[in-house]
């Protein structure tokens, strides 16, 4: 009976979390792995409304509040980042507006366009960091 109660409780906890949040967590994890697959103990900095709850669900990375020591930055905007965090960092923006105005500074972007979630990787920045994405994702590279 206790086992049954435990299973019920666990399933309630899981399903209380919406499917969309789980999918975003998967997406986040996949993006980080694609951009940093050679590193262990990847440090991630998050300043994004879209991804702020992710650390609750994805535990395999190290989350930091200091953008300088992060390997990957997930941010809504570059405006709040110090200059030294923008140079030589893999920045993934989560707003369309910042994707458009900072195309040369970011490695990728996730935003909504025409009612659909969209991901774009920046070819030049991928080359700068020596990252090669699997062939099947070539349509996401711009």
């Amino acid at each position: 009976m206790r086992v049954l109660a435990a299973i019920l409780l666990v399933s309630t906890y899981i399903f209380a979390v919406s499917n969309a949040v789980l999918l975003k967590a998967s997406l986040f994890s996949l993006i980080v792995d694609l951009l940093d697959h050679n590193l262990s103990n990847t440090a991630v900095y998050i300043d994004s409304k879209e991804y702020r709850d992710i650390p609750k669900f994805v535990k395999k990375y190290r989350y930091t509040d200091n953008c300088l020591e992060a390997d990957i930055l997930f941010v809504d905007t570059l405006k709040h980042l110090p200059k030294e965090c923008i140079e030589d960092h893999k920045i993934f923006v989560t707003k369309y507006r910042d994707f458009i105005s900072n195309k040369d500074k970011i490695i990728g972007a996730f935003f909504w366009q025409k009612g659909r979630p969209t991901i774009i990787f920046n070819k030049n920045r991928l080359e700068d960091f020596g990252i090669e994405l699997p062939q099947k994702y070539s349509k996401y590279i711009e």
């Binding site: 789980l22 999918l23 975003k24 998967s26 997406l27 994890s29 996949l30 099947k136 996401y140």
Partner: peptide
């Protein structure tokens, strides 16, 4: 559950939509 879903970007985007 997460990692079972994680294999494909296109599929994830479609499910997220």
């Amino acid at each position: 559950a997460l990692y079972a879903e994680q294999s494909d970007l296109t599929l994830l985007l479609s499910k997220l939509q």
